[in-house]
């Protein structure tokens, strides 16, 4: 099939149908599981430092999704947003339970992306400052940073994952960038 709009509609309706089928029989959830396993696993791994732990949490996410599936209602968002939200809860729960330090994974491209957003040159010195500045952010701000600049998610999807609205997310991201720049300038 050609044409992006029709394709999207088709995918959404398929997900809705799959959810309905899985609500009636959890064995049917396997199709959704296989469809979204990789993206959820990468989402979790972005927030953990061990592959084994990330894959373990991912399995847990799908188990939680199956438990909560009866409460799931399609509100026009992709099913994946709902899964990511469960994943965020699960990652945070795991950190709290094990009293582990929250992990942030960042690569060179993401550093460059953040630097350009805050109009700072990409140097070793600035990178060190950015790392220090990130230590002063709260969990909510780290989530925004991760989703927007490390995972390059659109604001719309970020809003869906966070069960928020797009304009609020945008405003928060812009404030976060101001905050990061402010902290770096003070250091």
């Amino acid at each position: 099939m050609q044409g992006t709009i029709d394709d999207t509609t088709a995918v959404l309706s398929t997900d809705d149908q799959l959810v309905l089928a899985a609500k009636a029989d959890r064995a049917q959830f396997g199709i959704l599981y296989n469809k979204y396993f990789d993206s959820v696993a990468r989402f979790v791994y972005q927030r953990t430092s061990s592959k084994d732990e990330a894959l373990d949490i991912t399995q847990q996410v799908f188990m939680q999704a199956m438990i909560a599936l009866d409460k799931y209602e399609s509100r026009g968002f992709p099913f994946s947003s709902w899964l990511y939200r469960i994943a965020l809860n699960e990652v945070n729960r795991r950190f709290r339970k094990n009293k582990n330090q929250r992990t942030i994974n960042i690569d060179d491209a993401s550093i460059q992306h953040v630097m350009s957003e805050i109009n700072e040159p990409n140097s070793e010195e600035k990178e060190a400052l950015l790392m220090m500045a990130m230590q002063e952010l709260d969990e909510d701000e780290i989530q925004l940073l991760e989703m927007r600049f490390f995972e390059k998610r659109p604001f719309k999807e970020m809003a869906e994952i966070r069960d928020s609205n797009e304009s609020a997310v945008k405003m928060k991201v812009y404030r976060l960038l101001d905050k990061l720049k402010g902290i770096m300038e003070k250091k």
């Binding site: 599981y33 791994y45 330090q101 992990t103």
Partner: peptide, 28 residues
Amino acid sequence: MKYKINKNQAPLTDGELASARNFNTVIK
């Protein structure tokens, strides 16, 4: 330090994901 920051962590490979994907474990 509040957060543990990893730089350039090795990504999950398709092979690793494929071997971890197991719906039977989840449904059990």
